[in-house]
Design a protein around this nucleic acid. Structure first.
Lengths: 341, 341
DNA sequence: CGAAGGAATGGAAGCGCTTTCATTGTATCT
DNA sequence: AGATACAATGAAAGCGCTTCCATTCCTTCG
């Protein structure tokens, strides 16, 4: 009963603290701290008593105080362009699953494909002193880079590849993807080649890889259309209409995402194009709907979740002081040939 | 140069602190704190000097320390079942946009439709002392409820409606959705009615609303299929096959999500069903692809982003001490009639 | 049985801020 | 010029924990 009174009193003074628990359990605050963080250092009987008090009071340790004192927050921050655009959602799930199982929490920032917003987010995130940070892509403002390297925490860049990451990177070469797609189309052979794409750095790299592979073989047509990332179904449809209106002959098209490809496909379908003979379409991402379009979409498949999982593992190893984490971890990709190419 | 030395020295002692900035700017730490948080209380000349030092050193305030001292973290936590399943992604984007513009940050938890994981997440989140918390749905373990109400912070439950929220709720009645859909099918009139659905609380409510509306008119068939949330394209396809194999006559089907409906649609399409005469399919969510299926999918539309926006506004108002926040904020929904019903 | 050594616990200091209250500076008024 | 008021700044305490070091308690061994 006396216990109960004290607990009740605490409620009025805000949440219970480690000192309250210590008093109720008849030990010192340090012992409570140990019971929570390093229980093997506490005698079983004492431990049990403390745990009982914690359960009874519903005590939840204050990680702000803990983090401040220990300089470890068990927080990992991740900045991705968007979460609504499918492409990064699974990466986040993979990341989160891995982090949670290691006792970490994910702090998410959405940059909207905007470098200066990435900078602001980085600042706001660093203010919370995460134990590590994950960024999407390898192109950042120089202020962002400076701030990041100055903060001296593990960094993982995801969804791209580079020989010189800020710290560690997990991804793949977008130029290689573009090149692979061009090769695939080349085997069949088309009169014209085109690319429909957004303007984010990675989509641009894929386009460049595509164009490079076709250099000297064919000119790659690029619809004149302002397509801001994330690009939409409509973008794809409009761009495809433009392409189809503009010229004759069979056409091989590489789209910067499956969503865009789906739009392009819809336009082609409406016009009765024969795929893949008159027209080939290759998307990117292998989204859920890709096998179910008409005809089913040929696309580039990447294990999006795996990027998250591997990024999490890398950063956790770094946090644990492992010096042997590879600077560049490559993720596989391949073409899933279905009905459109 | 002396400045530079001191800064450099700091780097070796970990990141600069407010005391370092104060020393370099020739003021006391309190003044630096004010320059950052309440600049109008600082004389312009002093302010400028401090800002110059901050810029030069790249100082980033430690929000752990700040939060500990002020008992305000400028953190809002949100627990959603998943981020990969489209349905909540836009809600998160809306939430995030609104929070960021108010100077708050979003801490995301993924429960995977699992109540006990929700409890663990709640504990972990509360340990960071967020200024508010957002939960998906209105069914929680009683330990979760107890912990939440004991923490004494603003709570918003989203994606469902209830006369008695924990604190505030933003959503709609899933039973009403089910009923609306049944009404829509009833006007056309089918020989058989069925529901294909996942087992999460909200999908179940939609089913019950659907069944209730048809009570006394028709028996609702429910495919015998274990469908765990989030349900998949494949679930829908298999369930539809079962339904089609099992009986004769025209069929009206309500699916628990557009993804499931898409799968059901694929099966129906493959069998050459005439829609919407022989078979009607109504989905839920109005996902991006819904207008582009064959035939285009009839579905229930909800402004998913708006739920996030309104939830953020509610919680921010609560934090600001506004007592007049409505306990239940209703979100509109309606049927988008396209080709499948 | 006393010494030695490890297990278990506690005291004190400090993490980097904000809050409260006190002090100093500066302008305004009579 | 002195009183008054407010603007601007600073000193001290404390937020709730962890870390470091010291102390106490057992157990074990010669």
């Amino acid at each position: 009963m006396a216990d109960y009174e004290k607990i009740k009193q605490n409620v009025t003074n805000g949440p219970a603290t480690i000192a309250d628990i210590a008093k109720l359990a008849g030990v010192s605050p340090v012992t409570v701290s140990r019971a929570i963080n390093t229980p093997h250092l506490v005698k079983p009987r004492t431990l049990e008593a403390i745990e009982r008090v914690i359960a009874k009071t519903g005590y939840v340790p204050n990680l702000l105080a803990g983090g401040l004192a220990s300089r470890k927050t068990r927080l990992i921050a991740a900045i991705v362009p968007s979460v609504a655009s499918t492409i990064f959602a699974e990466t986040i799930e993979g990341l989160n699953a891995e982090l949670v199982s290691a006792g970490y929490q994910l702090l998410l920032g959405l940059s909207g494909y905007d470098a200066s917003r990435e900078l602001e987010l980085t600042r706001a995130i660093l203010a919370r002193r995460p134990d590590g940070i994950i960024l999407t892509g390898i192109t950042h403002l120089k202020e962002t880079r400076a701030m990041l390297t100055g903060a001296g925490l593990p960094i993982v860049e995801i969804w791209d590849s580079t020989p010189s990451p800020l710290d560690t990177a997990v991804g793949f070469s977008h130029a290689a993807v573009g090149s692979l797609v061009a090769g695939h189309l080349l085997i069949r052979g088309y009169d014209r080649y085109a690319q429909i794409g957004a303007n984010d750095p990675r989509a641009v790299q894929r386009r460049d890889g595509f164009v490079d592979r076709l250099k000297g073989i064919a000119e790659v047509e690029l619809p004149e259309l302002e397509m801001n990332s994330p690009s939409t179904f409509r973008d794809g449809r409009v761009a495809m209409a433009q392409l189809l209106d503009k010229g004759e002959g069979s056409l091989g098209v590489f789209c910067s995402s499956d969503v865009v490809a789906h739009g392009a496909l819809a336009e082609a379908h409406a016009r009765g194009c024969k795929m893949p003979d008159d027209l080939a379409i290759i998307g990117f991402g292998d989204f859920d709907f890709a096998p179910h379009t008409h005809p089913p979409l040929t696309t580039v498949r990447i294990d999006r979740r795996d990027i998250g999982t591997k990024a999490a593992r890398s950063i956790l190893r770094k946090i644990d002081g492992d010096e042997n984490v590879e600077a560049m971890i490559n993720i596989d990709f391949h073409i899933v040939a279905r009905g459109t190419a």
